[in-house]
Design a protein around this nucleic acid. Structure first.
Lengths: 216, 216
DNA sequence: CAAAATTAATCAATCGATTGATTATGTCAA
DNA sequence: TTGACATAATCAATCGATTGATTAATTTTG
């Protein structure tokens, strides 16, 4: 059946995403991927041309869904900048929690600018989201809702960086936090509310001008 | 001469540090390292037992001095917790600025937790520093200098994570910040004071109980 | 001379990729 | 409908290259 063909490719992509996430591009051998997917090695080249082609296929499949929701938040004029920040944090944490394996691979590959072409492509797409977040904060500054001497770019580095550290250095964070950060159930039920509360408190303390409460 | 032996090992460590930093653990082949160091391949195993042994030798040499200074800061009873935090930030930023390539490689290696033994060993050594920083903040909480509802572990994730994001995703941060984060001169003269000021302001806003100024 | 240091040569293992053969599926004329 | 043919899918086997590691021989040193 035609459905079987599609399902098989999708199955390979699923497995490849998992293996790439766990071992990185170099660490994930085509033998491991094909073996784990239960297909012949040659099928990877048959379907995707090369190992890099397979990786790009995994990447492109994932990035499609991202941008719309974020832009809806950003362009909403009926609410405060801080409320947008809270919405963004919730959205972002949710996305990370349900895609943490993929996120990890993404920034692993980004850190290795050996394959310049690939990592530049990733960076370009991520920058769209960065600029959207930047706009939210800048609006808050312009409206006087946020402190005007906020270091915009470094705040963004903190938001993404805090998340990345937690999921990209699990040996450290699991020991620090006292529970397994790679356990999906724990991630959803324990970690998610905790990181949400923390990020909001941290950013509010830094961003919001508490002495000028005209906006709330 | 005996001095030659030591110098030769040190020379190998110097070269290995550079090659590991640039190419990562996998990317750096023993042939490249030995070739660049001008020694026979077998000498690496002769001196360090294995490639992993060489890597750990490089890592341990790097981290020792940092741990000594850090413990001095931590165990100083003549100053406030916030002052310790500022000292830590300055020390840490300085460390990162002058070793950003190595730091980058380190967390890359940590991110792919294959080779369980090696990355666990890395994590174990890094945890010493984490615990020291944790102690500083916990002291501040116990003394009432910091807010008691601070999320200790996530603050640490923010400190390390913000730094890691900046140096591990240079394609993003270079675009965001408007200057090349991989340029050593810029790193020292422009970025260093900026990240120091930012980290202090961010952490002060979140950590310090401003309504209780008995300590300042 | 004996121990340590150093070398060239080679080891088995693994890598990504490719081959030619085989099987499954689909197409179309008779 | 059926038989002939064609395309797609899948397979085992193997390619040359490279990896980290090891051996055995040689040189240097004390």
């Amino acid at each position: 059946m035609d459905k079987d063909k599609i399902d098989k490719k999708e199955h390979i992509l699923d497995v490849a995403e998992k293996v790439f996430s766990e071992l990185g591009f170099d660490g994930a051998s085509t033998r491991t991927i094909s073996g784990e997917a239960g297909v012949n090695m040659a099928m990877l080249n048959y379907y995707f041309g090369s190992k890099e082609g397979l990786f790009l296929a995994v990447f492109n499949r994932k990035i499609k869904s991202f941008q719309n929701i974020l832009q809806n938040i950003s362009s909403d004029d009926t609410t405060t900048s801080w409320n947008k920040m809270e919405q963004y944090i919730d959205l972002y944490v949710q996305r990370v929690v349900s895609n943490n394996c993929f996120q990890k691979m993404l920034y692993q590959e980004l850190a290795m600018q050996r394959r310049g072409q690939l990592s530049d492509e990733i960076a370009g797409i991520l920058m769209i989201n960065v600029m959207e977040l930047k706009k939210i904060i800048q609006d808050g500054i312009d409206k006087g809702e946020f402190n005007k001497d906020v270091d915009l770019d470094l705040v963004i580095a903190t938001i993404y960086g805090t998340k990345n550290f937690i999921i990209n250095a699990p040996q450290l964070t699991t020991t620090m936090l006292g529970y397994d950060i790679q356990d999906e159930k724990i991630l959803e039920e324990v970690f998610k509310p905790r990181i949400e509360a923390y990020m909001k408190k941290l950013l509010r303390a830094y961003l919001v001008n508490e002495h000028d409460n005209t906006n709330k």
